[in-house]
Simulated scan of single mutants.
Amino acid sequence: MEKTGFTPSDFDVFTIDGLENRMEALREQIQPKFKEIGDELTAELNRLTGEDMHLHIAKHLRRTTNPPNDSWLAVAPNKRGYKKLPHFQLGLFDDHLFIWLAYIYELPNKSEIGQAFLNEIEELKSLPGDFAISTDHTKKSAEKLQDLDEEALRAKIERFRDVKKGEFLIGLQLNRGDARVENYERLKETAITTYETLLPLYRHSLNI
């Protein structure tokens, strides 16, 4: 059976009313695709990082009322979890797909990583201009690097460093309907290229 990327009907899962109905669609429609592409991305990240990387697929088990507005896969060098580590994500909101290197609020050494990013801000500024930065993984909003001057970029990093719930996610956002999203091989290639570009940043943050 030919592998497919994410089609409009996949994004429409996030418009289904009710927790139970949306979760059923996520399990049947989205999570098998996350597993398929996630296995390949994990194998590639094993090669790129030289680490034993592990695939995690969001299960949203803590939700009891509100259905999730997004869902994702994560790849990290720990079999038991990923939230306390720098990790790679690929996931969906209803209108776009994201490919992130993610540093979320549960990181124990968030302030040290944030300061290291400030010290090496030229490395961040040299990344592709169409890369975006998010400061909250639960929100759709993100800003492209090409639209941020150094002062604005520093402010985002400082918030990540200093605010308990501050986060820092960097990578690509692709609109639903984008050819790179709907074609499996192009999506896989785009994700791998994105992760490869972010690899120096990932490695730098592991050495802190």
Rank of each mutant, 00 (worst) to 15 (best):
K188H: 09
P108G: 11
L153W: 06
K125G: 14
S111K: 03
P108A: 05
G166K: 00
R176E: 07
E28N: 11
T135M: 10
E122I: 08
T4C: 14
D52H: 05
T7L: 15
E2C: 13
G129S: 15
K59Y: 14
L174A: 11
V13S: 04
L101I: 13
E20V: 08
D136I: 03
S134Y: 07
N109R: 12
E150P: 09
E182N: 11
L118I: 05
G50L: 06
L90C: 10
H60C: 04
M53E: 00
D70Y: 05
D17P: 06
N66E: 10
T135F: 03
K59R: 09
K156Q: 02
L107G: 00
I30R: 01
L169F: 11
A116N: 06
L127V: 05
M1R: 09
E2Q: 08
V13T: 08
F34R: 03
Y184M: 05
G50S: 07
E189P: 07
D12A: 15
E167T: 01
R180L: 08
A179N: 15
A74P: 07
G91H: 00
F117L: 06
S9T: 12
F6N: 02
Q31K: 10
K164S: 15
Q173D: 15
G177W: 03
I133Q: 00
T138S: 14
E167V: 00
A152T: 12
G91M: 04
T194Q: 05
L48G: 04
R161Y: 05
P67L: 03
H96T: 02
M53T: 06
H204W: 04
I113D: 05
N46Y: 08
A25E: 09
L26M: 13
L48H: 01
D94H: 15
I170K: 01
T193E: 13
I192Q: 02
F11Q: 00
L48V: 08
L97S: 11
E28R: 07
Q89W: 13
P77R: 05
G18V: 08
I157M: 03
I30F: 06
F93M: 04
P68I: 00
T193L: 09
L45G: 09
S111Q: 05
L187N: 06
G129Y: 01
K3H: 09
N66A: 14
E167H: 01
Y82L: 07
E44A: 15
T193Q: 15
I57S: 12
G171H: 08
N175Y: 10
K156M: 02
T4S: 14
L101C: 10
N119Q: 12
D162H: 08
E189A: 11
K110A: 12
F34I: 06
F88K: 01
L199W: 05
K165W: 10
P86M: 04
Q29K: 13
E151I: 12
F168V: 00
L41D: 01
L48Q: 01
A58I: 04
A116V: 12
A179P: 11
N21T: 13
K140E: 13
D136M: 03
R47D: 14
D39Y: 14
E2M: 12
K35A: 13
R47L: 14
N66D: 15
R154L: 10
E158R: 00
E44T: 09
F88L: 04
A58V: 07
A132E: 06
S111M: 12
N175V: 11
S9W: 15
I104D: 01
V181H: 03
E51W: 10
A76Q: 02
T138A: 14
T15N: 13
L124D: 04
Q173M: 09
L148H: 14
